[in-house]
Nucleic acid binder design. Structure first.
Length: 317
DNA sequence: GCGTCCAGGTCTACC
DNA sequence: GGTAGACCTGGACGC
């Protein structure tokens, strides 16, 4: 699909805002799409925003202390002025431009673990997925598989069922729509993308989303607990997956992160990882309260440096 | 090579 | 309500 209609605007995020750290996270987390391109300070990405396929070109024209981002937004059909205004407002939320880090940093400076990560990653904002279904697919693919296999499954789904978009001289494959996946036969889907039992969860979740499940904007407007509760109504989404999808942020402790946080909190990895998950989650919430997600997010992006700062070996993702 | 084990969880049938 | 056991697949490991 060619996205030939272009509109331009600027965003002024709340400082400090490090553009590169925010749109291209050190641990390899992308902004919206696994196929996005980052080159020479510019990001080209594509996604579904408010059920519309859009191409985006984002470029920093400011600094960490005085941030400004120039945005070019590409669509198949011309946008009305109200649509442009709505998309700009939503994009600001999605890239974390309105997020004020001062309170988190104030708490983190007094914490013996977090003081290191906020220094290493000063100005990194938390971003949100633009399309709920994409987060659901990710959270289900992460279950019961090592990271490399999860990435292979995600890649196969996007390659086989994603939508190719062309804009600004770039071609990017956007994640598949829930509508397309809802029509698939789970057995064929599983075989094509090596998904195993996860295929039926993804297809059933897609059906539920298509039939009127709240979209990402509606989930963002809910309270954190309400959002979490709602998300677990999706097939294949339990406590862990809901913590990953929840735009309010959870504390998604799994068989990998329980080792990392077990070592940070108690000085050693738990003997039986799955049995220690609840204890580690509880300790994280007790220490960091409403900032538990931000703490998780910063630590996950800075494991290599944190290992050096603290003189302990932390398992990388 | 071949067999076995188990992993960034969730669901369901039992009790 | 709580708790085993099943669920796909592929890489690591021992032989």
């Amino acid at each position: 699909m060619k996205l030939n209609n272009k509109c331009k605007f600027e965003i002024t995020p709340v400082p400090p805002f490090d553009f590169e750290l925010t749109v291209k996270k050190p641990a390899g987390w992308t902004l919206f799409n696994s196929g996005e391109i980052f080159h020479d300070g510019t990001l080209w990405t594509a996604s579904r925003i408010q059920n519309r396929l859009v191409g985006l070109k984002l470029r920093s024209i400011g600094t960490v202390s005085k941030p400004r981002i120039r945005v070019a937004l590409f669509t198949a059909k011309p946008l009305m002025n109200t649509e442009k205004t709505d998309l700009k407002a939503l994009l600001m939320k999605l890239i974390g431009a309105e997020q004020d880090l001062r309170e988190f940093y104030g708490m983190a400076r007094k914490d013996k673990i977090l003081k290191h990560v906020i220094e290493d990653l000063y100005g990194m904002h938390d971003t949100q997925s633009s399309y709920l279904f994409n987060s659901v697919v990710l959270s289900i693919c992460l279950q019961m598989a090592r990271m490399d296999r999860s990435m292979k499954m995600m890649g196969a789904i996007t390659r086989s069922f994603g939508d190719k978009v062309e804009f600004d001289g770039k071609t990017i494959v956007a994640e598949p729509s829930a509508e397309k996946i809802a029509r698939l036969n789970p057995r064929h889907f599983a075989k094509k993308c090596n998904l195993g039992y996860r295929a039926k969860y993804i297809v059933e979740a897609a059906k539920k989303i298509v039939s009127g499940f709240p979209d990402i904007v509606q989930v963002m407007s809910m309270s954190p607990d309400e959002a979490r509760q709602k998300l677990t109504e999706l097939p294949g989404v339990g406590d862990y997956a809901a913590d990953i999808i929840n735009p309010h942020g959870g504390f998604p402790i799994d068989a990998w992160s329980v080792d990392v946080f077990g070592k940070l909190f108690f000085g050693k990895e738990p003997e039986i990882a799955r049995d220690a998950i609840e204890a580690v989650k509880s300790e994280g919430r007790k220490r960091w309260g409403k900032f538990a997600w931000m703490a998780f997010f910063y630590i996950a992006q800075d494991l290599r440096n944190l290992s050096k700062h603290l003189g302990i070996e932390l398992r990388l993702q």
